[in-house]
Design a protein around this nucleic acid. Sequence first.
RNA 1: GACUCCAUCGUCUAAUCGGUUAGGACGACGGCCUCUCAAGCCGUUAACACGGGUUCAAGUCCCGUUGGAGUCGCCA
Length: 470
Amino acid sequence: MTQVVTRFAPSPTGHLHIGGARTAIFSWLLARHNGGKFHLRIEDTDLARSRQEYTDSILASMQWLGLDWDAPPMYQTQRTQAYDEAVEQLLRTGHAYWCACTPEEVEAMREKARAEGTKPRYDGRCRDRGLGKAPGSCVRLRLPDRGVIAFRDMVKGDIGVDVAELDDMVIRRADGMPTYNMAVVVDDSALGVTHVLRGDDHISNTPRQIVLYQALGLPVPIFGHVPMILGSNRQKLSKRDGARAVIEYEQDGLLPDALVNYLARLGWSHGNQELFSREELVEFFDGTNLNPSAAAFDPAKLDWCNAQHMRSMPLETLADRVRPFVEAIGLQIPGERALIGLCKLFRERATTLKALAEAFRPLLIGSRDLAYAAKDATKHLGETAGPHLAAFAEIFGQCEPFTADALDAAFNAYVADNGLQFKTVAPVLRTALMGFMGGGHLDLTMEVLGREETLARLAKAAAWRPEVAG
RNA sequence: GACUCCAUCGUCUAAUCGGUUAGGACGACGGCCUCUCAAGCCGUUAACACGGGUUCAAGUCCCGUUGGAGUCGCCA
């Protein structure tokens, strides 16, 4: 059996978006599952719209997603010789011909056809004129006179199109550059691509490409057309649906594994399983169970998926991931131990790394900057809180070592010795430490804060007085 | 308009060769837990687009209708 070779072929006219990311994921998965090769090709033949910065951005997003490729990326602008040779071969074998029609003339033909209610097509008037190369001339592929071009699609099943629906397409533009379909066929063939996975907006290109493969005497790969991703209104994806560039999800603090998991699961399934590690995806994704119908993008489920991944990864790894986000919002990055404590404290309370870093804020600012939520302070830091706060300062000031376990024991002893109820005194401590009724376990919170900061907060809380209105 | 593709809860989806009280997940809602907020657990809500066939039996096969999407470039 021959090796499976897949590819992802973006054009550098923008950042990598989630639609492209998903087909890249499927292609990468299919190659990795089969122990094959995965290639990258930059389709930069549209000189006017292609930009180097987008190529850089796309490659960076691919790396961030963890989709590695097996050879240096191929750039179409560097392959003019291969395209020229292919066109030359087609001309020589009679599968192609020079066409001297101007774009205006062709457009007139289309207008006429549209007016008559038939399919706008080039009428093939230069087919047998025996023209040679001339300024302004392009080369067109000579289609078979009749027949049906059929193929078996990995996701859609059998598809067939009558050649009568097609026209003699341009394969070499007047400026000498190849057109999309031409370049794709020459390049996929050169790369030895066996499985072409792409968006189903390309489905109408496929018959044309098959004709090209045949005319060139090349083996036709297996095609798989993945449906487009829709927005929440089941219309084409737009910004307001949360459909953005991969780089934006990175900046928002999503985990690459979570994005890959969610996107892979959109349009593909493995029984009832929702959460997959990267290894599981590689193990299970074999190109089957791809859904032929379009799927709507759901930001809420993506968030849930990300939250699940954040909760199941090692704390040390999570700490490494969140560090840049802590720095980005201007907070002092604590030591490793404290940072891990913060992650443990808040990871079940945040769905993104960005939100997680933000949740750290009350504990990472100094007591001087701690603000109290009026409602919570009024309720829990009133006059009856005074004795408790004084006692806390006493017992925690002496607590040794200053660790969660010891602090927990000290707190519980205080509650028991004074015949109190945990639930009546805990809010006092919580409000004093956090500034509001939120956050995680109090013992770990204090450990993360450290003795000095904990005492400072207790003192500040003891000095709190309600503001007198008026 | 022509051609092509698509059609299960609001959303993502499952349902081996036709036989299921049509399952799971997200969301929403309710409950439990609880010092708070979450998380977690339990539960509720909700779908085979429509109409014909074939068959003892159709979400599953066939035809049609409706609806949606894509393409119709010397863009990719």
